[in-house]
Computed example of a mutant assay.
Amino acid sequence: MTTVLILALGSSVVAGALGHILTGLRAGATVRRDRYAAAVKLLVARIEYPYRIRRRTSDDHEVLNALATTGHDLQEGLAEISAWISTESPVLSEVFAHCLTSLDAPFKQACNDAWNASPITTAAQMNLSGFGMGNQQHIVSTMERALTYRFGHRRLMPAFLLRRVLKRHGILP
């Protein structure tokens, strides 16, 4: 009888420990998923920011202040998420940095063009016909493809091997 009681209690302890470990793993994956989704959202926000500038409706102080605040928030968000990614995965940090570097020149040019343009005064002017950074979806897609290596069994891949795989697939230069 004592043996049965010990086995029953022992299996409950093991089951509880396994349940606790699995819950922790799930919670960690949820945090990673949400943070990486925020990283992709910030890449898209960087692509969209010049369009916000170009579609401003006036050069009044309030409008300019709102755009400046948006730009500052974007920069702060990019710095924060870059720091988080570098602690979570140095290899994905390289991918994110490469994505930002790829966006840098077209972003600066589009912002410059947008600030030099007159504010929008009619609905027809909202159609920007040819303005902007062009199609940059491939950069966002690059980050999304890299993210598949941070979940499931691929997450266990050592950094040196992950870097080699991402280079082979053209995700890292």
Rank of each mutant, 00 (worst) to 15 (best):
R54F: 04
E88A: 15
D34I: 08
H138P: 00
I120W: 02
Q125N: 04
S102Y: 00
S89F: 02
H138E: 10
R26F: 05
C99A: 15
A146S: 11
A29V: 04
I85G: 01
W84N: 01
L67K: 01
E48G: 01
R54W: 03
A159T: 06
L166E: 02
R55T: 12
D104V: 02
A124P: 01
L92F: 02
I81M: 07
R32W: 03
F160V: 12
I6R: 05
I53W: 00
Y149T: 03
L64S: 06
D113C: 07
L78E: 09
T69N: 10
A97T: 14
V95G: 00
A68L: 14
V140C: 04
D73A: 12
Q109L: 15
L172A: 06
G170L: 10
L67V: 06
R168T: 14
V165T: 15
A38D: 13
L147M: 15
G132K: 01
T101L: 12
R150I: 05
H153W: 14
T2R: 13
Q136E: 13
R32S: 09
L64W: 03
S102P: 00
E80L: 13
N127H: 11
L25W: 10
R26N: 09
R26L: 11
Y49H: 12
N116Y: 06
W84M: 06
I120P: 00
R35I: 07
L128D: 09
N116D: 14
T121W: 05
T70A: 15
V13H: 02
K167W: 05
A27M: 10
E48A: 13
G28H: 06
R168W: 09
L161A: 12
T3H: 12
L147I: 11
D60P: 00
E76V: 07
I81V: 15
A117F: 04
L100Q: 11
E144W: 02
N65T: 15
D113E: 15
R164W: 11
A38R: 11
R46Q: 14
S118W: 11
A146Y: 00
K41N: 13
G152S: 07
S11R: 08
K167P: 02
R32I: 11
A123I: 13
N112S: 14
L161S: 08
G134Y: 07
A66H: 08
L22M: 13
R52N: 11
M126I: 13
S82D: 12
G10C: 09
S86D: 14
C111A: 15
V91H: 00
A8S: 15
L156R: 08
A124C: 04
